[in-house]
Structure formats: C-alpha cells, structure tokens
Design a protein around this nucleic acid. Structure first.
Length: 440
RNA sequence: GCGAUAGUAGCUCAGUUGGUUAGAGCACCGGCUUGUGGUGCCGGGGGUCGCGGGUUCGAAUCCCGUCUUUCGCCCCA
C-alpha cells in the first residue's frame, strides 16, 4: 500500500468540503471588498525565491532540475509570483491593484501541528497605494473573513505593529541602518527564545550594548496603547510626527471599518523578513497560543528588488488553511458537511427507464438527483433513499406511469404529494422556494 | 538535522507470563423486504499486526534497524 508523503494530506469528500467551505468564504468576502482573483503556476524558477529570500531558503523548498536543465521549485509562497505578474504589466494596470489568490503551497519542513509540507493559503495584496488606507483595507478584509467564518472578538485578535516605529526608536538608541536588520531579527526571535539568547545576539551585533538594548527593547515591546505609543515617540520631531499621524490614521480607519475591536497594538511583532517596511501584523487565536492564523504587512521595496525597474508600494497578508482549520474545529465552527442529493428516485422494476428520464429532467432543472443503479425492490430503494440523505423521494410505480404522474415524498416528515410528470419541475421549484413540502 | 512518542480492519480500540485459524464496536455490503425509509434481526467482505532482519520449537507480543505519526528543538516566507 502507498501512503501520502509526509506532510501531505488526502481530502476525501468530507475533508474536501470543509476545505472548500473556507475557500468559498475567502472568495465571497474578497469579492465583497472588490479584490480580483488571479492564479499562477505552482512551479517557478528556483531563483525567484533565492532572489527574494536568500540562498538559505533552498533547503526549505521542494526543488529539482527539470528535463531542460532548469532549476525549478514548487512555490513556498505567493508574493514573488505576484510581484512578477504585477511588475510585468505594472503600467497598464489600473491602480490600486487589489488581487487575491487561493492556492496550494509547498515547503520542505518538518511537519508539525498547524504546519505541513503542502498547505493552502489565501493571499490578498494591495499594490500601488502607499497610504494607510491600503493597510486598513487589508486588515478589514482579514477581519471580515474571520467574522464570516463565525469567529468573534472572544476568538481571535490581531497584533498590530509598525516597522517604521521600530526603525525610528532604534535610531534613537544608536542602531545604525547597517545593523538594523540583525536587531529586528533578534527582536522577532525574542518571542520564541530565552532572554539570554536574545541578549547574546544583540551583543554580537552591537558589542558592549547588548544588555542596554534589550532593556530598551523590552520597554518598547510593553507599549500596548496608542497613548503610550505617542508618549514614547514624542511629537515635535518631523519623523516622529509622521509616524504618529500614520498610527492615528490607521486607528481611525479601522474603527470606521468596524475592525478595531480585534486590534491589539503590540510592537513585539516585527516579522522575520527583511523586506517589510511599515505596518505588520499577525492574527492569533484569542488565547495567543499556537501558530499565527494569518500574517502580513507592507513591503514597499520588494517589487523593485524583484523586478529591477518597477517601483510600487505594496502590502498584503496571507491566511494558512491548517492553523485556521484547527482553530475553527476547536470552536465547533466547522459543521459536518454532508453532501446529499436533493432527490432520490424510487422506481418499480418495469418503470426504471422511465424513471431515469425523470431523473435526467430533474438534473437539468438543477436538482441533484440519485437513484439505484441496480434493480432492487421498493423496500430496499426506500432504505437507500433514506441513507442518501435526500430531501425528497420521487416514487414511480406502475400506477403513476399509467396516469402520467409521479409521487413526491418528503423524507423528513413522510408527507406525499402526487403531481403530473409534466409539472414535476415546477412543483419541485415551488417546494424549494417554500423550503418544504406542505401536508396534503 | 536533533530529542521524545506511538504504529493491530476504513475509524476507535482489545489481544493474558511469547502458544491453535488475531477479536469487538462503529462503518461498508447482502438477506428478511418487488409499494414505503435511517430502527431491528440474521449473514458477509475486509488485516502478510507499518516494513526488514534477529532470538525462539513457536513472535502482534522480546531485541536491532528502518519508515511513518504526534509533540518539542531548529526554521517559520
């Protein structure tokens, strides 16, 4: 017997419909926000990822040489692909560009809770707009998706941070642009590390100042309100004023979107990647435990880096299907999807073919219809109809055929109605609209 | 890549100090049932006990290796 590869999942019908439920919500809500769906190959040139993330990334990719001696990789994320697509026609695309994708991604990592080697992501990106309105639009979309899935304020929170704030405050502490990435990286990892390890990293980056920096960083990480933040930034300085202005804008906009209740100001979020430039955020289950449900931020210089000539501000986020499914499951928000037909034909032995033509008619009318593929008695067919979960049974015996009728039985309350075969579809639609069959 | 954990039917699990042909419940298929359904009763199919090697007269059971699962470390775009 063959098994799925480690970190990969099969999706038999029930799992598949749960997954599709997520996808349906992603698409519906994204369209409500006027985002356009796009798609792209899952296989890309390996260099696309090396260029963006550095050579270390190769160890985490599914990659190989194809028959044309090209180094290729299964996509581990969507952003480089998106950047390439947008850069290719940047001048002709109406701005702002609001695109989303639902797709499979691959990372060669150790499978763990909420993390596999194949997973699905919802990616939404907004390009060509540098104001905080774009960041707020994306955060509002993220919140709307979670709300539509049934999650509320008691279920999840979004930790919002800003790299510009960090850059400004680190500058004040004497952190130069050169060593800034290393310091931000250490801050990002400090969430998952012992303090001594972080101090050691900082000490290596800024000899003699590791302890000092860590003390200051901890102070900054504790900031959890707009007032505290403004107090720390102190207005008067032009740069500080701009940052304060951005925070005030995004706060006001998120309040207008009805999304602010989910937001926690939390500067401990910086995200590991060097390319983030402004607001960054991660969504977590309300308790804060577990992996991030979603994450994103602004990446104003990435297009330029990847394309070489197109410079365009951009921001975006991604939601992973595994952590999200786990979260929904634990809260009972993944109802058991049962795929059932609307109708089940029950026909006598001599009426089977006649019945199939009725089935065909019903199917063309948009009703999902099942019937027994082999000859069996009425009793057996009723049993199968019951097990199928169909709402109505269409009963066709010699009496009905003789009178050109068909009997419709509501399998939930056992009431029956006899209608002419000609009016079957109309009657079914009527029932459909009423939401049930009426007792005779 | 490192550490721990587990692996018996599709699923959840029994399986005695190593001892005939490895069991149960659920699920699946059929019969009772050729004009009224999910219940009931009866029956059936399905396992090289993760895989390979070793110890033994004899291994699901003991030993070694390996693969896979789950959890943690690393990493987390």
């Amino acid at each position: 017997m063959f098994e799925t590869l480690p970190g990969f999942r099969d999706f038999p019908p029930e799992a598949c419909s749960r997954r599709n439920h997520l996808f349906r919500v992603f698409r519906t809500v994204a369209r409500a926000f006027d985002f356009k769906e796009y798609d792209a190959p899952v296989l890309e040139p390996l260099d696309l990822y090396v260029e963006k993330s550095g050579a270390e990334i190769v160890g985490q990719l599914f990659h190989f040489e194809d028959k044309g001696n090209r180094q290729v990789a299964l996509r581990p994320e969507m952003t480089p692909t998106l950047a390439r697509m947008v850069a290719a026609s940047a001048n002709s695309l109406p701005k702002p560009i609001k695109w989303f994708n639902v797709g499979e991604h691959f990372r060669y990592e150790r499978p763990q809770k909420g993390r596999g080697r194949s997973f699905y992501q919802f990616n939404a990106d907004l390009l060509g707009e540098s104001t905080t309105a774009a960041d707020a639009e994306l955060l509002a979309l993220l919140v709307a998706i979670f709300e539509t899935l049934g999650l509320g304020v008691q279920d999840f929170k979004i930790r919002l941070s800003d790299r510009n704030t960090w850059i400004f405050l680190l500058e004040e502490l004497g952190v130069s642009e050169e060593i800034r990435p290393a310091v931000l990286n250490a801050i990002d990892k400090s969430e998952r590390r012992k303090p001594e390890q972080t101090i050691e990293s900082l000490e290596q980056t800024m000899p003699g100042k590791g302890e000092f920096l860590w003390d200051k960083i901890q102070e900054i990480k504790k900031i959890d309100s707009l007032d505290a933040l403004i107090g720390r930034l102190k207005s008067g300085n032009q740069k500080a004023d701009k940052i304060i202005q951005d925070w005030q804008n995004i706060t006001d906009l998120l309040k207008a979107h009805g999304a602010y209740a989910y937001i926690t100001i939390d500067l401990s979020i910086v995200r590991g990647l060097a390319y983030y430039t402004g607001f960054v955020y991660e969504a977590f289950e309300a308790s804060g435990k577990g992996r991030a449900l979603a994450g994103g931020g602004r990446y104003d210089h990435l297009l330029k880096k990847l394309s070489g000539n197109v410079d365009m501000p951009a921001c975006g986020f991604a939601i992973g299907d595994m952590t999200l499914s786990d979260c929904l499951e634990s809260k009972g928000l993944l109802p058991k999807y049962v795929m059932t037909p609307d109708l089940y034909l029950i026909a006598g032995l001599n009426e089977q073919k006649h019945g199939i033509s009725l089935v065909s008619q019903a199917r063309k009318g948009g009703f999902s219809t099942a019937y027994s593929l082999k000859s069996s008695g009425f009793g057996k067919q009723f049993k199968d109809a019951g097990k199928s979960g169909a709402r109505y049974a269409l009963i066709l015996g010699s009496e009905e055929v003789e009178k050109q009728n068909v009997k419709i039985k509501d399998l939930r309350n056992a009431t029956e109605t006899t209608v002419s075969q000609k009016s079957l579809l109309a009657k079914l639609e009527e029932f459909d609209a009423e939401g049930g069959i009426q007792p005779a």
